[in-house]
């Protein structure tokens, strides 16, 4: 039995580095881990400290958004607002939102590649709704950073790993619907 435990433990140790969500700082205790994993979807139905939602009807996505400083604002748990963002209540704001693709429950953006130019993306931030239209969509080689034009308009960037092309990053550029 001990041998089995050791084998299992070794497997866990091997799996931990390659499983991104296990690396997340939010998993500090076994209890919190279970809570997060077990009832994450259920929590969505209740009032939380989220500041709003991202809603993309075409891919049946509706997820909570947390403020940049909130510890829940990380890709291992939620759709994440990146820290270089400016919120849409500002003029010429740039919201940059990332989430996992691939498979699994946190792969919120697994269908992001199914979006096309002209599709609508909504943000609800502090009870105010912002409607964006997809203007462009492209993939670039993964370098740990993405690049997109800075425009004088309210802008929304969605990004995730390319679900179809290894080592590429999918970027979707949206502008506010006039």
């Amino acid at each position: 039995m001990k041998k089995l435990n050791i084998i299992i433990l070794l497997i866990i140790l091997i799996l931990i580095p390659i499983s991104p969500h296990i690396n997340n700082n939010s998993i500090k205790t076994k209890t919190s881990l279970v809570t997060k994993i077990g009832i994450s979807n259920h929590l969505k139905l209740f009032k939380d400290d989220n500041i709003g939602y991202i809603n993309i009807d075409k891919i049946n996505l509706k997820e909570k958004l947390y403020s940049i400083g909130n510890k829940k604002n990380n890709v291992e748990e939620n759709v994440t607002i990146l820290r270089d963002s400016t919120f849409p209540n500002n003029i010429n704001s740039t919201m940059i939102i990332a989430a996992h693709s691939g498979t699994g429950k946190i792969a919120y953006f697994k269908n992001l590649d199914k979006l096309n130019i002209g599709d609508e993306v909504n943000l609800i931030i502090k009870d105010k709704k912002y409607n964006y239209i997809i203007k462009n969509k492209w993939e670039e080689k993964k370098t740990g950073s993405i690049r997109f034009p800075m425009i004088k308009q309210k802008q929304l960037i969605l990004t995730t790993c390319s679900p179809n092309k290894d080592n590429y990053q999918l970027i979707i550029n949206c502008t506010i619907k006039e």
């Binding site: 991104p20 990380n74 690049r147 800075m150």
Partner: peptide
């Protein structure tokens, strides 16, 4: 903009 993004590949 050229900004850093987290690894967003899930398994």
């Amino acid at each position: 903009y050229k900004i850093e993004v987290p690894n967003t590949k899930a398994y």
